[in-house]
Design a protein around this nucleic acid. Structure first.
Lengths: 311, 311
DNA sequence: TTGAAAGCGCTAACAC
DNA sequence: GTGTTAGCGCTTTCAA
């Protein structure tokens, strides 16, 4: 079955490819006789013509493809996937609407080689939970070519936009809901180790009172020390885990995964706004359109939107 | 900053683009003098040359891009995302290794228009939880052009491969673990309504005893009738919900999301093998390589791998 | 109002 | 051992 190209349409309608192109693209500074237009449109319809985005990409230098680099998920807790999926979905929705597609690729654990994905002519790249070193390696690979935005990354570089939950506001709000000073903090596992560090520093709590999740049994051990005391947990899935070991004290969860329903009714929830992803998508689109412009305020903080207080 | 193409390398090294192409691609039926090879390689290195996959795609007619069509997730329970993510990850890992990239796109809820994604020259398409009507519309759009594989779909057509959990074996195993005939069946919400129907038929249980999840309150009402009785739940997240309302009876979960950890210790778990995704990826690769071949046995059933029995 | 032709970056058949 | 060239499908300038 032969491919239906503009050339085929042109032959079919007895015109040149240029004319077909004008008509199919509604080029407005070209006058086309109603009759020709009709004929070409009909032919295109009949033959079920579909434009070839690959050719367009080659011609224009814009692929309308945006890469999303996700960590390989071996060794991460099972819920990591949910966070990534959440981000992917929101980015996807907005960028699809704007005519872009997301190409996903997983970074190999040792990060020995850059994903092939990057050999493609991408219009932009999002990284999820990538360490600064990975981030820099990617940006170096591209030169200053294309915009890169980091999500859930500890990177702090005026050259790059990042999207991160506003943990500071989150912890404050959590304390308010608990009605008491939190006595401990449970931190989710992040591939980007820097994230953990930033959260630790920000929380300004005694090191002893902070626990980074590694395994259920370690978590249980840690929680045993704080039985009956109020605490804050980052990530609703981790909170769900914690609730199995600590039913006495009150917990407040910073819901970074966007599914407070998971623990609804069993802990306080502080939810971060998924709107930040829309914002990130828009920044990306802006950058692609006008790469030369400077976009200040490159830290997009996921704001607190709401939460649920227990009776 | 100018793009580094083969042409640039050629000029830099004082050879033709063809020669550059031969060398960079290690074309083996071309003899190249060691000296020229050296010179070209050096130049490519120095200029940080990256091949242009778009041009290759146009030339070869293969994009090495595989589409993944996901349902728009508005209106679905929050956990739907996890299932999709799980499939995406496993498919991605295998296909990335084979040199393919996944392009994701969300199907708009009314399915008024096909996603732009499909205008791209894809080498293949996976659908997730797509109804037969969507499936057929997509395949019609492509003619017989490219392979399409449906995951979590009720489609039953010898022309297409599908991947679906082996619910029959799952329910049997669940009963075995429960040590008693299940008295009710909780079915997860599927966008593809046909899936629900197939499960219903297969279970062969009294209609009254089967409940399709719609909301937490409806679930609670349903479970109230079966307090203390053993039952089977499809999907670990749904099981987690159910465990909040029914702590008296014993539940067995068919873990279709691949994260039995979520309910570990609180219900029997029957897990389906993620290896089916690898298999699907391989079938896809085969099809792309030899589209004319016929691949029999087009139903890939996700097998039971293991589970956890409660004390 | 329409068409010819160049060119986006690359490969491969063919010529030298 | 290396180069010339056509062509993948498309847009767009320029000419008719």
């Amino acid at each position: 079955m032969k491919k239906v190209t503009m050339k085929v349409i042109a032959e079919e309608a007895g015109v040149s490819v240029a004319t077909v192109s004008y008509i199919l693209n509604n080029v407005n500074n070209q006058s086309i006789s109603a009759e020709t237009r009709e004929r070409v449109m009909k032919a295109a319809q009949r033959l079920n013509y579909k434009r070839n985005l690959t050719a367009l990409a080659l011609k224009s230098g814009k692929s309308e493809l945006i890469g999303v680099l996700l960590p390989d998920q071996t060794g991460e807790p099972y819920w990591a996937r949910y966070r990534y999926s959440q981000a992917l979905y929101h980015l996807g929705k907005h960028l699809n609407d704007a005519g872009y597609q997301l190409v996903v690729s997983y970074i190999d654990p040792q990060f020995s080689k850059l994903p092939i994905l990057l050999e493609r002519e991408l219009d932009g790249v999002f990284t999820l939970n990538a360490s600064s070193s990975i981030f820099h390696r990617i940006s170096k690979h591209y030169g200053v070519g294309i915009p890169i935005i980091g999500i859930d990354t500890s990177l702090d570089d005026p050259l790059f936009h990042t999207v991160v939950p506003d943990f500071e506001a989150g912890i404050e709000e959590a304390a308010r809901r608990l009605g008491a000073e939190p006595q401990f903090l449970l931190i989710d596992h992040y591939v980007d180790h820097g994230m953990t560090e930033q959260i630790r520093e920000m929380a300004g709590m005694d090191e002893k009172r902070m626990h980074v999740y590694s395994s259920a049994s370690e978590l249980e051990k840690f929680l045993a020390q704080y039985s009956g005391l109020p605490g804050v947990v980052i990530n609703e899935f981790l909170c769900e885990q914690a609730l199995r070991f600590d039913t006495a004290g009150r917990l407040a969860a910073l819901c970074t995964s966007g599914c407070p329903e998971l623990i609804s009714g069993r802990a306080e929830t502080v939810v971060f706004d998924a709107d930040a992803y829309r914002e990130a998508a828009e920044v990306m689109i802006q950058y692609i359109a006008r790469p030369q412009d400077h976009y200040p305020n490159n830290h997009i903080l996921q704001k607190i939107v709401h939460g649920e207080t227990l009776a």
